[in-house]
């Protein structure tokens, strides 16, 4: 597979959220606002790319028997780095994402790609795989967040850390409050997933 294909794979064919259905915990929890979704997506992408790189670099050095603990240490290191840097740089976002930042370490996508791809492929391909998967994850998160934030609160892009209080598209009193509560996360994702299934089903039929 060419590098371009490796990259696009992560966004479309094997999109972690909509196709592989991995890494769901942060997706449901964090998609309350677009900025949160973007922040989490970028943080996870950083960890994914870095750990894919290192694990790919070390793939012939790490013995098979202890590979999982080694992968875990590598991933956890980058997660801690992201955690500290975000706490120092964007404290409000860091506070809102809260526990889900350290939880990036158990994001099935990252360990999954380390095991399935980075430990068996060259550095270049692993880099693009990480970028593609990360981007696919981020885009999926943003898509879900747009629905939840817009239809739930009427605002978009509320960003406390940068002093931006969002674009009000319509008044908050018309918003469907349920969407920003836990049930809304499940239901919105379910409907979104159904929509995507339907759309790709139609595309398949047309061929």
């Amino acid at each position: 597979m060419k590098l371009r294909q490796v990259f696009a794979n992560g966004i479309f064919r094997e999109n972690p959220i909509f196709r592989l259905v991995l890494g769901m915990c942060p997706v449901l929890a964090v998609s309350v606002t677009v900025v949160n979704g973007l922040g989490m997506g970028l943080a996870a992408t950083f960890v994914l790319v870095c750990s894919n790189l290192i694990i790919s670099l070390l793939r012939n050095v790490i013995p098979k028997e202890v590979r999982i603990p080694c992968f875990i240490v590598v991933v956890a290191t980058f997660v801690t780095i992201v955690d500290k840097v975000m706490a120092a740089g964007v404290p409000e976002l860091h506070g809102v994402l809260g526990i889900f930042i350290p939880l990036i370490v158990v994001n099935c996508i990252i360990l999954g790609r380390a095991e399935a791809f980075a430990s068996r492929n060259t550095v270049g391909r692993s880099l693009f795989d990480g970028l593609g998967m990360g981007l696919g994850f981020t885009l999926g998160l943003i898509l879900l967040s747009i629905f939840r934030e817009l239809l739930g609160t009427g605002c978009l892009l509320v960003a406390g850390d940068f002093g931006f209080s969002g674009l009000e598209v319509f008044s908050e009193s018309y918003g469907a409050l349920l969407l920003i509560l836990p049930p809304g996360a499940f239901i919105t994702l379910g409907l979104l997933l159904a929509g995507i299934n339907w759309w790709s089903g139609k595309k398949g039929e047309e061929r």
């Binding site: 070390l58 013995p63 202890v66 603990p69 780095i81 500290k84 840097v85």
Partner: peptide, 17 residues
């Protein structure tokens, strides 16, 4: 190998911290 990886990670994190 595991110990080395842990040691290097620990060192990097101490720095970042």
């Amino acid at each position: 190998v595991l110990a080395l990886i842990c040691a290097v990670s620990g060192g990097i994190l101490a720095l970042v911290n």
